[in-house]
Amino acid sequence: MNARVETGVPESAMRFDIDGTELAVARSGKGPAVVCLHAIAHGGRDFEVFAKLVGDRFEVICIDWPGQGRSGADRQSASAARYAELLAHALQALGIERPILLGNSVGGAAALILAARGDANIRAVVACDPGGLIEIDDTARKAIALMVKFFGAGERGAGWFGLAFRAYYRFLVLPKRAAKVQRRRIVAAGYENARVLREAWESFAAPEADIRALAATIDVPVWFAWAKGDRIVSLKQSRPAIDAMKNARVTQFAGGHAPFLEQPRAFAKAFVKFVNSLPA
């Protein structure tokens, strides 16, 4: 069983050895580079419709994170910090200059971490419902512990996990019709991705997962595109961190966690508007 490859970039995608991990990368379109970074247990195919909508004016580069989609396993556990490290190496390997980073969830957090470093020559960041902008207090730790337990059950192969994971995605994470096909692929790979989900959620409770101070140092423009119905990452709780940033704006879209996937046309239109507003 290898359902996870169906969530990722095409089979024809390039492979790069990045810090001992084989990453699958797909490139399409022509124009300024947009590097797309998916949520945990998703894949580069999340951006399939987005790439078709904007491919006439942007080059869209999609990366499958380690152990997800068509990428190989990593020697380190999943975390936003690890993904930011891999992303920095990947941009060098790909020879991409002045990219716009488009990241969702853990991908959005990785994009913000790399932008804060200031050494990757990033033009702008589009962060969709990113983690890391909320205080990790006792309430957050308890919620994270429940999710770790949930995905740990999937990792052990619990019989009830499949139906529970399906409901989790159908009603909480990607409830909108436009995400239906990719949602089915993600759900089908639930057991395969349970380990990386458990690892990622464990990392969310670590002190370094709080990137609020890092985010405040980012100099490049940041557009937060947030799903209004997100019950996993709260915009309200993230607002103080966003307001503390130098050059950030927020747009809300109907959906659960991934605006570009759940409202693709509205997102693409707003994305182009954002890019057109950037300094030359």
Rank of each mutant, 00 (worst) to 15 (best):
P10A: 12
P10W: 13
A13N: 08
F16M: 05
L23I: 04
R27D: 01
V35L: 04
V35D: 00
H38Q: 10
H38G: 04
D46P: 07
F47E: 02
F47T: 02
V49L: 11
F50W: 04
K52G: 13
K52R: 15
V54M: 03
G55R: 14
I63Y: 11
I63P: 01
G67W: 04
G72K: 03
D74S: 15
D74R: 06
R75L: 14
S77T: 05
A78G: 07
R82S: 05
A84N: 06
L87G: 01
L94I: 02
I96P: 02
R98H: 09
R98A: 11
P99Q: 10
G108A: 14
A111G: 01
L112S: 13
L114M: 13
A115M: 08
A116L: 04
A124C: 03
A124F: 01
V126A: 12
V126I: 10
V126P: 01
C128L: 05
D138E: 14
K142D: 09
K142S: 13
L146W: 14
M147N: 10
K149N: 08
F150K: 06
A153D: 05
A153E: 05
E155G: 03
A158V: 00
W160G: 00
L172G: 06
V173R: 13
L174Y: 04
P175K: 06
R177A: 07
K180R: 15
R183D: 03
R184Y: 11
R185D: 04
V187E: 08
A194K: 05
L197M: 15
E199Q: 15
E199M: 11
A200E: 11
E202M: 13
A205F: 05
A206E: 15
R212T: 07
L214H: 08
T217G: 09
T217L: 12
W223I: 01
W226N: 00
W226Y: 07
I232G: 09
L235S: 11
A244T: 08
A248K: 08
T251Y: 12
G255Q: 01
A258F: 06
A258G: 05
L261W: 03
Q263Y: 06
R265S: 11
F274N: 00
S277R: 14
L278V: 02
